[in-house]
Amino acid sequence: MTSTTRASDEPLRVVITGASSGIGQATAELFARRGAHLVLAARNVEALEDVATRCRSAGATATVVRTDVTDSGDTRALADAAASTMGGVDVWISNVGVGAIGRYLDTPMETHDHVVRSNLIGHMNDAHAALPVMLAQGRGTFVNMISLGGFAAAPYAVAYSASKFGLRGFSEALRAELVDHPDVHVCDVYPGFVDTAGLLHGANFVGRRISSPPPVLDPWRVAAAIVRLADRPKPTTIVGSTARVTRLLHAISPALTGRVMSRFLDAYFDRADRVPMSHGNVFEPSLDAAVVEGGLRSPRKRAAAGLVAASVVASGATAGLRLAKRRGAVATR
């Protein structure tokens, strides 16, 4: 019978999809410092090789596998490569994510389709490939990178919202199916806005420069939260105050949260610089990968986004007070 426990002195066997930049790259490098055996996957092999070189320098073994997670054949081949190279999989981090910013009707339907395929079907393909390995060995941790988008819808990112809401539901349903396998874990990670190049790399159909409002998380902080799940798996990990507040506000009033988000984005795009529209990395991998941080925490960008955010928060607070007064008036009738 296969043992369901791992000796503490054995290196972790870790698969990371979306490992060519951002949170995926940072997570790979943190696991590397622990001497893990790594299998790194993404569409950009050249960037993966750069990341693998850094991981090997930190003390890990690292194998690169070109993988498009929207192709279930690719994810099965990735699982086979991991099992044959490392003898099993202790942790699989499903980290692929792309986005398209633009009004729903201004964004091509094929772009919406591919965002959903990457962010939802891609994670389902990962799980379908990884879980048989984990069930056969009697243990393992599967980590879904979601985001605050799993709690609250984002205007101008309809497909992204659909994919993240769907991914949260997928994880919850999958955990329920695995209740009789207590050593096989499905974990979700919900960070707020993170300082990676993801927004800049995504599709842009508003024709305006895109950034994130403060506070913007350090991607190394998110990566550290993921690494901790290897030792102490838990169903839900929320990283950053923005994600916590967003979850709370959406629970109180989804409609109000959506209106505040829409006001914020309208105000931001009115002030943002014009840039060409593009499909970004939705269909083809980014060329400037193998970079963890996106430069979104610079003082100038924080000040500009913060000014817009402050005005919108004030509007949202006023609207919230009006809503509360209306509800109070109805309750006393």
Rank of each mutant, 00 (worst) to 15 (best):
T2M: 10
S3T: 07
T5W: 10
R6C: 01
A7E: 04
D9I: 01
E10R: 14
P11V: 14
P11N: 14
R13A: 06
I16E: 01
I23L: 13
T27Q: 02
A28K: 03
E29T: 06
F31G: 06
H37W: 05
N44S: 14
E46L: 11
E49P: 01
D50A: 15
T67K: 07
T67P: 12
D71L: 14
A79T: 00
D80K: 14
T85Q: 14
G87C: 03
G97K: 10
I101M: 13
Y104S: 04
T107I: 12
M109Q: 10
M109W: 15
N125I: 11
D126V: 08
A130K: 06
Q137W: 07
G138W: 10
T141C: 15
F142S: 04
N144V: 05
N144G: 06
S147N: 11
A154K: 09
S171E: 02
A173L: 10
L174E: 05
R175C: 08
E177T: 15
L178E: 09
H181D: 04
D183N: 15
H185G: 06
V189P: 05
V189R: 05
Y190I: 00
D195V: 08
N204Y: 05
I210R: 14
P213S: 15
D218Q: 09
V222G: 07
A223H: 00
A225N: 06
I226M: 15
D231L: 09
V239Q: 07
V245A: 12
T246W: 06
L265K: 08
L265T: 02
F269S: 00
F283S: 12
P285W: 10
A289I: 01
R297L: 03
V308C: 09
S311L: 15
A317P: 00
K325Q: 03
R326N: 02
T332S: 12
T332C: 06
